[in-house]
Simulated scan of single mutants.
Amino acid sequence: MTESSTPAIRLTGLRKSFGHVDAVAGVDLEIADGEFFSMLGPSGSGKTTVLRMIAGFELPTAGTVELGGKDVTRLAPFERDVNTVFQDYALFPHLTVRENVEYGLKVRKVGRKERRERAEQALSSVRLESFGDRKPAAMSGGQRQRVALARALVNRPKVLLLDEPLGALDLKLREQMQVELKAIQREVGITFVFVTHDQDEALTMSDRVAVFEAGRIVQVGTPEDVYEKPASPFVAGFVGTSNVFAGETARTLFGRAGTFSVRPEKINLRKAQETNGVVAEVIYAGPVTRYVVDLDAGARVVVVEQNRRTGTAALSELRGQRVRLDWLDEHVIEIPQLKENAHAE
């Protein structure tokens, strides 16, 4: 991420209403120049609407959008120094890969020689320099995704907006493209704003993450901060799996009132003379096993352990057995009350 006193994007009091429904209910956010920033949230949380307002495809009901310090709130999409990559890629099937990448430059009446040079450079940046003469139909989903990325990069925008571009890919390819996208972003140094509902995707790729709920940002921070220090029960439950304790259960386990969270991988499960729960279910998931444990204190807890030595038969024998769960005090997260809105500084 490059250092700059002027953010690449500044959103102030941003709102968008559709009839009586507030899709975006007041967002304040700054995204630094050269940052890989993700907007994470469930369907209907407002993240895609915010992206569309940055792109100019939606006009805000209230608030402002600034790009590089310039107010672009009322400018058309083609008047903004941004490009968008969509989930369906929107490639022209009758054009070659090279012609697809050149298309935006041709519309801008860039000369043929410069178009070809910049298209080749863009294809090289996504490692498709030998695919220029192919048609999109002859390429894999991951390759078409990279063509769409090259078509956006060739215009040399200050900001690249990505609207769930990996959503249509299978798991293996999606994981591969996560690594490739982050590497490309580092190489080109452009600000990437990535919209996703996939928590692992956001944590893997981002410098910072904004978590959306009901049209608002409820937390902004590094992936580590969002995962290890969730600002609300919603964040704790949505970003990864978390065991949340409140009410009398919290009083019994922690000796005081409040809402607390312990991540499944932080909990130790063992057989001991003093037990505090019963294993209700054992779920083998390849590299890990998930245990569902009913605590005597009244909570149902998920525990995750790596499968280093134990076979599946031995694991299944734990079902119905009494066990002891414990954890370190440093791994207990006290979740604060939800604030009205979270702001990025």
Rank of each mutant, 00 (worst) to 15 (best):
K158W: 01
Q199N: 04
A202V: 05
L328E: 14
V292S: 10
F86M: 07
R251E: 05
Y89H: 09
P233T: 07
G46E: 04
V21M: 07
L14S: 00
T196Y: 10
T222H: 04
D33R: 15
P230D: 13
V220Q: 11
D88C: 08
K158L: 00
L203R: 08
N83Q: 06
L338F: 00
A32M: 04
A8H: 07
M39P: 01
K70T: 15
P230Y: 03
G258T: 05
L325V: 04
G277W: 10
T289F: 12
Y227L: 10
V244R: 08
V179M: 02
A344T: 11
K271D: 14
R80E: 00
E228S: 08
L171Y: 12
T241I: 15
A183F: 06
F78V: 04
V332I: 15
T310L: 13
L161K: 15
F92V: 05
V220Y: 01
Q306D: 05
G298T: 11
A202S: 08
R118V: 07
A62T: 03
R146K: 13
S130V: 13
A297K: 12
R270F: 06
Y103E: 10
D163F: 10
Q176K: 08
K158Y: 00
E201L: 06
Q143Y: 03
Q199L: 05
D133T: 03
T289K: 11
Q145F: 08
D170W: 05
F194D: 03
T275I: 15
P136K: 14
A183N: 10
L29Q: 05
R10L: 11
E30R: 06
S38T: 10
L91T: 02
M1H: 07
L95D: 12
S232Y: 09
L173S: 01
A313T: 15
E281W: 10
L105S: 09
A150E: 07
L153G: 01
D294I: 07
V211G: 01
F57G: 01
T289G: 01
V262Q: 10
R80A: 04
G189R: 11
L203V: 10
P93T: 06
F131Y: 06
R208C: 04
V101F: 10
L153S: 01
G34M: 12
Q145S: 02
M39N: 02
G19Q: 15
Q143N: 04
R309K: 14
S316T: 08
T64M: 01
Q219W: 02
E317Q: 13
A138T: 12
E305W: 12
T61S: 06
F212K: 12
D198E: 11
G258D: 03
A122L: 09
L203Q: 09
D329Y: 03
A32W: 08
L40N: 00
E334I: 14
T289E: 03
E224H: 13
Q143T: 06
D207R: 06
E187T: 13
I283V: 15
R216H: 03
F238P: 00
A231M: 05
E66K: 05
V107C: 04
T191M: 01
E317D: 11
R134C: 03
L171V: 14
V85W: 01
I333G: 00
Q178H: 02
G277D: 12
A299C: 04
R52M: 09
V21N: 09
S43C: 04
E187L: 13
L181P: 00
E120P: 00
L295E: 09
S130P: 00
R208Q: 11
L149R: 02
V154L: 06
A183P: 03
